[in-house]
């Protein structure tokens, strides 16, 4: 078995990297994949909270790198999925505590036993970002449909190109269909037109994402959530399945739907 190392990054902060990492991890684990999530945001760890595993932390990424514990000891097993693990970031150190070479060595040790290694990158383009992308076989760029997030994503793609990494794929997070329809928000086409990379998924805005992150239960475990469905679709695409993009333009209001049908509206 040889795991695929997937790094989730964005340039800009607050676009949903950690939420995406947590949800893809859970979605992959639901499909019986052996998954380890690595929080590379040393000093500002978050992934443990979103995964609901904060109180189980004993050792962290820096402890492994500096030899204070064995790799096994730092793997925190998820409550619901026995094959889903987390390596948390250290809270007290900074990005320089780990080097890109350390990250490559660490993932190489995990590759044999796992199917997927997901790395949650910190925001920015400095050391923490370099650490996160160094071992990546594939990079996913998370962006929001707004100009500043897309600008940062573009910069990051440029840096990855200079590193001769495989062309990253794009996750468009927090898409609000009603605003896109009114022309107030960039559409997926507007974003991919600038970034010129392939989309792997579009996550619709969902009020339940924040409460579910707060309670440590990623939204993708909520069967009724469309955002959760979108994350499950991305996980299937990561596994190589050809999953059609879902029509986001689906409301439960039949009259609205009919009206839209006549107006020639279409999904994204």
């Amino acid at each position: 078995m040889a795991a695929k190392v997937v790094t989730i990054t964005s340039g800009k902060g607050g676009v949903g990297k950690t939420t995406t990492t947590a949800n893809l991890g859970v979605a992959l684990a639901r499909m019986d994949q052996k998954v380890v999530l690595i929080d590379a945001d040393i000093g500002l760890r978050n992934l443990d909270i979103v995964m609901g595993l904060e109180n189980r932390i004993v050792y962290d990424l820096v402890d492994i790198v500096e030899g204070r514990c064995k790799l096994r000891q730092a793997l925190i097993k998820h409550k619901m999925f026995p094959d889903l693990y987390l390596i948390p970031a250290a809270q007290t150190r900074d990005k320089t505590a780990v080097s890109p070479a350390d990250m490559i060595q660490l993932t190489d040790q995990l590759r044999q036993e796992m199917d997927f290694i997901l790395i949650d990158s910190p925001a920015g383009i400095e050391r923490g970002f370099r650490n996160a992308v160094a071992p990546a076989d594939e990079v996913l760029i998370v962006t929001n449909p707004e100009v500043s997030a897309v600008r940062d994503a573009d910069r990051v793609i440029g840096l990855l190109e200079a590193e001769n990494k495989k062309t990253p794929r794009l996750i468009l997070n927090r898409a609000k269909l009603d605003q896109i329809r009114k022309g107030e928000m960039m559409s997926a086409e507007d974003v991919t037109d600038i970034l010129a990379i392939k989309l792997i998924g579009i996550i619709p805005e969902d009020d339940q994402v924040v409460p579910s992150s707060n309670s440590g239960v990623p939204i993708t475990l909520n069967e009724g959530s469309r955002a959760g469905q979108a994350f499950r679709n991305i996980a299937r695409r990561l596994m190589g399945e050809d999953v059609p993009f879902m029509n986001l333009d689906e409301s439960n209001n039949l009259i609205k739907r009919l009206g839209r049908l006549f107006a020639g509206g279409k999904g994204i």
């Binding site: 600008r151 573009d154 910069r155 793609i157 440029g158 190109e161």
Partner: peptide, 8 residues
Amino acid sequence: RRTLRGGR
């Protein structure tokens, strides 16, 4: 012969 991305 490539796209000049933001920041370049």
